[in-house]
């Protein structure tokens, strides 16, 4: 196996996911099988190839900087899990 359980757990932390112990082996082996599959790309010579991020050649789309109406605060907050005084409310961020 190329991918260890620790690798899988590291990428879970980056993803803000917690993989329970009972599922760890499965997620690890699936990630490993996937990475083994995509190894075939290594055989493609790409030294002189430029990467493509968007299929169509669209670049630098400009517009005039004019003020337009945007979503009302009440509508923007309507789906908030928790709110207070017109703000989104979250649990503690800083250590006490």
């Amino acid at each position: 196996m190329k991918v260890s359980k620790k690798d899988m757990e590291n990428v879970a932390v980056l993803s803000r996911l917690s993989i329970p112990e009972a599922e760890a082996a499965q997620y690890t082996s699936q990630l490993d099988a996937f990475l083994a599959y995509v190894e075939n790309l290594k055989s493609v010579p790409t030294d002189s190839v430029k990467p493509t991020t968007y299929a169509l050649p669209v670049q630098n789309v400009f517009r005039e900087d004019v003020v337009k109406p945007s979503l009302e605060r009440e509508a923007a907050l309507a789906n908030a899990p928790l709110r207070e005084d017109g703000y989104f409310k979250v649990p503690r961020i800083l250590e006490e």
């Binding site: 493609v44 790409t46 190839v49 430029k50 990467p51 493509t52 991020t53």
Partner: peptide, 12 residues
Amino acid sequence: AYYLKALKVRTL
């Protein structure tokens, strides 16, 4: 090795 490589093969 993975993401950038894939973007290059996308070009091909």
